[in-house]
Write a protein that binds this DNA or RNA. Structure first.
Lengths: 155, 155
DNA sequence: TGCCATTGGTTTCAGATGAAACTAAATCGG
DNA sequence: CCGATTTAGTTTCATCTGAAACCAATGGCA
């Protein structure tokens, strides 16, 4: 009998626990949930809303479209989150001088306050997560993520 | 006038584009979407369903609860995905001898077929993503993810 | 044995989500 | 200028999602 040449089954190759997309998904979910859990109830804020506050904190005056690009959320999500934030008086929308369809969005004092209170919480969580790594490893992680983010764009 | 001591605003510290949880979320979403796009329509399969097929491919006979643990999906999602897969004759559910509440789940021939056809697609996407990295960097990424996954568990 | 707490799994309900249709304003081409 | 196209943003609709309630079987344990 000739030596048995085993055909590798896909099961041998695709091990969910080792599969990068799966691992990224699990890690991302764990982290996002943990952080959201810390602010969601206290501040009555969803993740999309928090992202909008975070980006407007640094870059006031963006339009909904620009927010969508900056945060990689779709425009429906942005539209809804902005609407909620405006009702909650956390965002101010002012008509754009050049284009009546656009609104320039920025944080109100209340919005700033939310931002100022959540940012430290978020940063502390990030720091806690990163405490598993030393300085060199953090730089390495950053560099790897940069490249994976680029590569993932053209998948 | 005394030298102005600037109080750093949270905006200076929390830059969304540099914030690890955010970057992980973007990366994970890009990857998952890209892969799902390749099989979702063709095979009429959702991500939860695909995960269940993947895990049962390697570990036949798991119960719904074990699947939920293995895939970190919640039991509602598992229950629904299993129900769909059974209807589609991709999974077979057989009563557990010891406990009438449990069902042992495994792939049917059709389920195996789906598995065998999707696994290469998924692996090719992973490989394409990883092509941005050399062997040493891949090992490093793996090691870093291992540790972050552990750290994220206790956030 | 018979009751109670626990566990595996499903259903319900209310909110989140996204693709596609839509509205209104701006731009383009003639 | 005027209609056709594009763009910013909203609404609709159908689906997805998860927390909580629920049901049924099991495992204590008195």
């Amino acid at each position: 009998m000739a030596s048995a040449k085993q055909k590798p089954s896909p099961a041998d190759l695709l091990v969910l626990e080792d599969f990068l997309p799966y691992r990224l998904s699990i890690l991302s979910n764990r982290v996002s949930r943990a952080i959201a859990a810390r602010y969601a109830k206290t501040f009555d804020l969803t993740i999309p809303e928090w992202r909008i506050i975070a980006v407007l904190g640094r870059r006031p005056g963006l339009t909904a479209k620009e927010i969508a690009e900056a945060t990689e959320m779709d425009k429906v999500a942005v539209s809804r989150a902005v609407a909620r934030l405006v009702v909650a008086k956390r965002l101010r929308a002012s008509a754009d001088a050049d284009d009546a369809r656009r609104q320039n969005l920025s944080l109100t004092a209340q919005g700033e306050s939310v931002h100022a209170r959540i940012a430290p919480i978020a940063l502390a969580a990030e720091e806690k997560l990163l405490s598993a790594l030393d300085a060199r490893e953090r730089r390495e992680l950053d560099a790897l993520l940069d490249r994976l983010l680029v590569a993932a764009r053209s998948l």
